[in-house]
């Protein structure tokens, strides 16, 4: 019953609006105001354009300043300082153009609105002006490109030799990480060796794999270069560490990488943000299916000594999954047993 009443009400309102519309348009015809060009509508629209500009520029500055801390993420990596700085330099330059160009647009619209007595200026071109506003943007953009190239090359350069290596693998719908262990070398892998337990498809005929370990979270040391070796198992994913300004796609069949230097430990960031529960998070930014929005992995940045302690306390994956010792070739069994601390004869 209630729904019917609402329905009737809506119909009634629509009918009234329709009638008003009809009356209005007939009145216009009767008055002949539809033929007038310097009309009230023209003035109202001109004024509204100016008003729109003023209100929105105020709103833009107000929100940008008032909410600054909410929409800017604290930065926790060395190259992040560079990208952030470049972002703000670009914001400053484009911001000026944004305000001036929009202001000119709306102001001209208001200032030069139609007048019966007025006449537009016949002004088809001005080559000097045109050259100026071609060359000036070109110069500014060249500077921005040069600046950008420098930063981009720096970020994408070869990772330093001493980088801590972490393998990050994306799959539907989570991340897995693997560390090279004490030998500092990640064991080889082959996607055909993947099974529900050996999720990385680690190849145990490679002796570098014996001490690899697979923790639940990523740990990285503060102040040291970290090299993420990124891959995907099923579809595209993308490693995204918002606080570190790190983003790189994970592609099945094509390993990618990204290296960076964390500058603030988790603990330091907890103090900076005033949030005792703060954690760095790794998210996915390439659409990968149903659970795309929930591919969360916590990343912990430790002080270097804590990191060492954590690293050394980790148990090799093979130790946790001794059945996979059988995959180790005969002649390496001995070594595997020593590395993992399991007596393979048992």
């Amino acid at each position: 019953m209630f729904e019917v009443a609402i329905g009737l009400g809506v119909i009634l309102v629509l009918v009234i609006l329709l009638l008003l519309f009809r009356v209005q348009s007939l009145l216009n015809v009767a008055r002949g105001s539809d033929k007038k060009i310097e009309s009230t509508s023209n003035k109202v629209n001109g004024a509204l354009l100016l008003l729109f500009m003023i209100v929105s520029i105020i709103a833009f500055f107000w929100y940008s300043i008032a909410e600054f801390d909410n929409y800017t993420l604290p930065n926790a990596s060395e190259h992040g300082v560079l990208t952030d700085r470049m972002f703000w330099v670009t914001t400053a330059i484009t911001g000026v153009v944004f305000i001036l160009a929009n202001a000119a647009l709306f102001y001209f619209a208001f200032r030069y609105q139609y007048k019966d007595s007025g006449k537009a200026l016949f002004y088809p071109d001005n080559h000097k002006l045109e050259i100026a506003w071609t060359v000036i943007p070109a110069i500014v953009l060249t500077l921005l490109v040069g600046y950008g190239l420098k930063v981009w090359t720096q970020i994408t350069n070869e990772p330093p030799e001493e980088s801590e290596v972490v393998e990050v693998m994306g799959y539907q719908f989570a991340w897995k990480v693997r560390y090279p262990g004490k030998d500092g070398m990640l064991g080889g892998y082959d996607y055909r060796l993947i099974d529900p337990v050996n999720e990385f498809g680690v190849d145990f005929s490679d002796k570098a794999s014996f001490d690899d370990f697979v923790p639940r979270e990523i740990h990285v040391p503060k102040g040291k270069p970290v090299l993420l070796k990124i891959r995907a198992r099923d579809v595209l994913h993308s490693v995204y560490l918002p606080h570190f300004r790190v983003k790189m796609d994970a592609v099945p069949g094509m390993p990618t990488r990204f290296w960076f230097i964390p500058t603030k430990s988790t603990e330091e960031m907890r103090q900076e943000t005033g949030n005792p529960d703060f954690n760095y998070e790794l998210a996915c930014t390439e659409i990968c299916g149903r659970g795309h929005f929930s591919m969360r992995l916590i990343m912990v940045v430790d002080e270097p000594e804590d990191y060492e302690k954590w690293y050394n306390s980790q148990e090799p994956w093979l130790t946790q999954n001794p059945t996979y010792l059988s995959k180790v070739p005969e002649k390496l069994q001995e070594l595997a047993a020593v590395t993992t601390g399991i007596n393979s004869k048992n």
């Binding site: 060009i37 023209n42 000119a104 030069y112 139609y114 537009a120 506003w133 943007p137």
Partner: peptide, 18 residues
């Protein structure tokens, strides 16, 4: 950018009908 500036210059000193 050239296009935008040219639009602005077109409206400048026009007799604009909205």
């Amino acid at each position: 950018a050239v296009k935008v500036f040219n639009y602005l210059a077109t409206m400048w000193k026009g007799n604009i009908r909205f």
